[in-house]
């Protein structure tokens, strides 16, 4: 561009018009995003430095709210549970789905029906799913214990949602139930883009394991990355609905997750300052996770 003659006035006017039109076209999207995503987070940082009940005057506290949060045992319990939930559910969904997809990646009759069936729970809301599974888990009248009884497996009968050692895992199971079909369909679609000659060639040589490691998995990596990113980020949020509907965080905070505790702090204890301090901390953690994942994905894409 250096040494090029200065743009003529007409060209500059055209350039400016393109700029203005471009920004006019993206403005509504950006405005919505700034107003209801970026601004709330900035505002939350400000509120987190105050004592505030959500209605009255705000009183400056400095970093005290953060100190309260770090000293709050339930918050740490909730964070711990959130991490167990997010990672447990992500690993379970993706491993199960990958295994299923590998097994089903052959021309089978009825695969369309299978896809329709296993994708169905995805369409349902977490509220419906949560209420339904609370009933399936009911210790006396629930389907699960009735099935176990009928199979002669009385020893396995549990208070699925009332036993503090089990409740969180029961809820995680429901999340996995809702989404495994989804990830299976994702992986199946990914597998279908891999030329079958590549896999067949390896199979004929009798080295299915090597084929998987050196052909299938690398080619499937973008799909795996997408699928894992989706489930991690999703699991940090979806746990709210299920926990709220199924256990309200109990028994004894054993299923408390970050979002339910934040909401309780804000609306039951009317402590918006502390609730926003927790939101900021959670936001930072998730943002770091997201960024790491994003960078990993980009690196994979390059390499």
């Amino acid at each position: 561009m250096t040494g090029a003659p200065a743009l003529s006035r007409a060209a500059r006017a055209r350039r400016l018009r393109t700029d203005l039109t471009g920004w006019a076209f993206v403005a509504p999207a950006l405005l919505l995003f700034l107003l209801f995503v970026i601004w709330p987070m900035g505002h939350a940082v400000w509120i987190s430095l105050h004592r505030w009940d959500g209605l009255g005057q705000m009183a400056w506290l400095g970093l005290d709210n953060y100190r309260f949060v770090f000293g709050d045992k339930v918050f740490w319990k909730a964070m711990h549970n959130t991490f167990i939930y997010a990672f447990g559910v992500t690993v379970a969904k993706n491993l199960l789905a990958l295994g299923l997809a590998l097994l089903l990646n052959r021309p089978l009759r009825g695969r369309g029906f299978f896809r329709t069936a296993s994708f169905t729970p995805v369409v349902l809301s977490f509220v419906v799913v949560g209420v339904l599974w609370s009933w399936i888990f009911d210790p006396t009248f629930g389907l699960l214990n009735a099935v176990l009884w009928a199979l002669g497996l009385q020893g396995l009968i549990q208070g699925w949602l009332s036993d503090p050692d089990i409740a969180l895992y029961s809820i995680m199971f429901v999340d996995v139930w809702k989404w495994t079909g989804y990830h299976t369909v994702l992986f199946l679609a990914g597998l279908q883009t891999i030329p079958s000659e590549l896999i067949e060639a390896g199979r004929l040589e009798g080295k299915p394991r090597q084929v998987f490691r050196h052909v299938t998995l690398p080619l499937l990596m973008p799909v795996v990355a997408f699928s894992v990113l989706l489930s991690i980020v999703g699991a940090f949020v979806s746990n709210y609905d299920l926990v709220r509907v199924m256990t309200q965080g109990g028994p004894f905070h054993s299923t408390e997750v970050a979002l339910t505790w934040i909401t309780t702090t804000a609306f039951r204890f009317n402590n918006f300052g502390k609730a926003d301090a927790m939101s900021v901390i959670l936001f930072l953690i998730v943002a770091v996770l997201g960024a790491v994942q994003f960078l990993l994905m980009r690196q994979r894409g390059r390499g």
Partner: peptide
């Protein structure tokens, strides 16, 4: 806008409520 893809929105629920 791409940044927004990485923000799970439940995290911002209480801040959004205040706004």
């Amino acid at each position: 806008l791409l940044l927004g893809i990485m923000i799970p929105f439940g995290v911002t629920a209480i801040p959004v409520f205040s706004v």
